[in-house]
């Protein structure tokens, strides 16, 4: 079975400085892999690298056999870490999800856009995350957990081969976490391949097949969740301690690890 994502001795970082390096792992079709690790370890840098937001600085990375730099962008659905969908102007749920399709189309040929097909894809994506009846709602009126599902629907709108998610359950109350886990279970049952950065493995225990741990910019564990070494993920994530890089301050290995604060970059 050829892998969906294959990363071999790869390095990713900012401004020519690697934050994660010598990372090797593969993601097979239908697999759901959780990426764990303390704040500032480089896990966000790694998955952002897979969608072209951080620089690829070494090794080889392929998406469905194509080198990362040339890979078709619509193959990867990206769900960034956002605590809210703070829009500065009014937007409906369907309009936000629709940007998932538009962004992948050529702006230089705007007449080639097919609004009817986009609408169908948006409706399908919203059904998948259980928000089919909220398409016309003002997105800022939704709860935090519902807004996360809007972001997942946006990523699903291009029918990607793999979903890459950054902390989909962080800062979401328990009830909505259950709903989110249910959505991920449904996607898994449909055979969706997923790579999920998380601090809350318990919430996703029913979904995750395998765990990868990133510490101090290196991959230190790759295997089933139940044989995870105790203390394999140092520290727990709290919503607002992203500035606190104290736990990696003593790490001598890669000083630039501090750059990755885990939060959304300006």
């Amino acid at each position: 079975m050829s892998p969906v994502i294959e990363v071999t001795d790869a390095a990713f970082g900012y401004a020519g400085q690697p934050v994660v390096s010598h990372v090797t792992f593969r993601l097979d079709p239908g697999e759901v892999v959780a990426v764990l690790g303390p704040n500032g370890s480089g896990k966000s840098t790694l998955i952002k690298g897979l969608v072209g937001l951080t620089e690829e600085l070494g090794g080889t990375t392929t998406i469905l056999g194509q080198p990362l730099a040339q890979a078709e962008r619509g193959l990867v659905g990206y769900v960034p870490q956002r605590h809210t969908l703070g829009t500065s102007v009014r937007a409906s749920v369907a309009e936000i999800v629709g940007t998932g399709r538009v962004a992948f189309m050529s702006m230089w040929r705007p007449w080639a856009r097919n609004p009817a097909r986009s609408r169908q894809a948006v409706a399908r994506a919203l059904d998948l995350v259980g928000l089919g009846d909220r398409a016309d709602a003002d997105v800022s009126a939704l709860s935090g957990g519902q807004q996360r599902r809007v972001l997942i629907a946006r990523a699903l709108a291009t029918s990607p081969e793999v979903l890459i998610m950054d902390e989909p359950t962080a800062g979401v109350d328990h009830g909505n976490q259950l709903v989110l886990a249910g959505v991920l279970e449904r996607l898994k049952a449909r055979g969706t391949t997923m790579l999920i950065v998380t601090h809350e493995l318990d919430a996703l225990a029913t979904v995750v097949d395998r765990v990868v741990v990133i510490e101090d910019g290196r991959l230190t564990y790759d295997g089933p969740a139940d044989s995870l070494p105790p203390g394999g993920t140092r520290g727990h994530h709290h919503d607002h301690d992203d500035e606190d890089t104290g736990e990696s301050a003593g790490a001598p290995v890669i000083p630039t690890a501090r750059i990755d604060l885990g939060g959304p970059r300006a």
């Binding site: 969608v51 937001l53 962008r73 998932g100 538009v102 962004a103 702006m107 705007p110 970059r265």
Partner: peptide, 25 residues
């Protein structure tokens, strides 16, 4: 003609970049 792209880039610039959109343009 470009309103869907103008909307997408202004709504979530990071996401638009991840999708390969020419956000600067």
């Amino acid at each position: 003609a470009l309103r869907p792209w103008l909307f997408a880039a202004a709504q979530d610039e990071e996401y638009a970049r991840a999708a390969g959109m020419p956000v600067t343009a």
